Amino acid sequence: MTDGIVSRIIDSADPVTLVGAGAAGDGDLHEAISHAPRLVAADGGARHALAKGLMPEAVIGDFDSLDNVTRAAIPADRLHRVAEQQTTDFDKALRHIAAPLVLGVGFLGERLDHLLAAQTVLLRRPERRCLLLGRGDLVFLCPPRLLLDLPEGSRVSLYPMAPVTGRSEGLHWPIDGIGFAPGGMIGTSNRVAGDKVLIEMEAPLMLVILPRAALGAAVRSLVAPGPGWPAP
């Protein structure tokens, strides 16, 4: 067990599934693992993993939502306590995982404040590629260059978390020259105009929201070689 900040509790060459304590669909965890085979839990998310017959290789958090029964079922050397209270368990876990992609389950649940906090973490840790899976949608921070192979007409929503600009190819409404801002122009409900979409952003400030059916395409894009954002 570890107190304080520990760097790279998980260092993986493969994508990692991170399960949180929030609400998730019945098949979410197994679907995530089919794309990201290594399993880590953020605090009370360990309970969801055990309920599905899965043992996380690490549990990371402040342990305020890790019940005693779940805690006792997990080997002590897999429990990594991060004692500070200034960040969420999602943040604590994400910053201690080095992987090509982290696929998060149980972070876009029924509570709006949890959803907003999770989106803030995506911006706070731009160097960690992370996709959050919800019941009907998925969301991730747009990398510097994103190439998606999606059917024509597929929904592609862009939501800026601060003023930002970019360019696109293959969107019905191109974004070139648009100054996006959360209190101004946003890019929700755009759609694919061909069979591929290219989006380039000038800064790590734009969220991409896609339908759940686009999970495979999004994972393939995010793990492909390409430029990434530096740590703040």
Rank of each mutant, 00 (worst) to 15 (best):
P75I: 12
A76P: 12
G22Y: 06
D26A: 15
I33H: 07
A83D: 15
D89H: 05
G20N: 08
F63D: 00
G20S: 11
K52R: 14
G53E: 05
K52D: 14
A99V: 04
V102H: 10
G45V: 13
E84R: 03
G44W: 05
H48L: 12
A98D: 14
S65Y: 07
A93N: 03
T88I: 09
H35N: 08
A73Y: 04
R78E: 02
V19C: 08
D91Y: 13
D77F: 03
L101A: 03
P37M: 03
D26H: 14
L54C: 11
I97E: 00
A99K: 06
R81E: 15
E31G: 09
A99D: 04
V69Y: 06
I60K: 01
V59D: 00
P100S: 11
D26S: 14
R47C: 12
G27I: 06
G61L: 00
L66N: 10
G22T: 07
P37N: 06
L79G: 00
D43P: 10
H80A: 03
A41G: 07
N68E: 14
K92A: 10
V102G: 09
G106R: 13
G27A: 12
R78K: 00
G25Q: 14
H30C: 11
L101V: 01
G20T: 13
L54R: 12
G25W: 08
G25E: 15
G61V: 00
T87M: 12
A41D: 12
N68P: 06
N68T: 03
G20R: 07
A42R: 06
G104Q: 11
R81K: 15
F90R: 09
R95L: 03
Q86F: 03
R47S: 15
G27D: 15
I60W: 00
L29F: 04
A49D: 11
N68Q: 10
L103T: 13
P37C: 04
N68S: 12
A41V: 07
G61F: 02
L79C: 01
D91S: 14
A36R: 06
D64G: 09
L79Q: 02
V82A: 02
A23G: 13
E84V: 07
L39S: 02
G104N: 10
R95M: 06
G61Y: 01
T88W: 13
A51S: 07
Q86Y: 07
L79V: 05
A98K: 11
E31F: 13
I60R: 00
P75T: 12
A72K: 03
A58R: 01
A23W: 13
K52V: 10
A49M: 14
A42W: 06
H35R: 12
L50R: 06
E57W: 01
L50C: 10
I60Y: 02
A93C: 05
A72G: 04
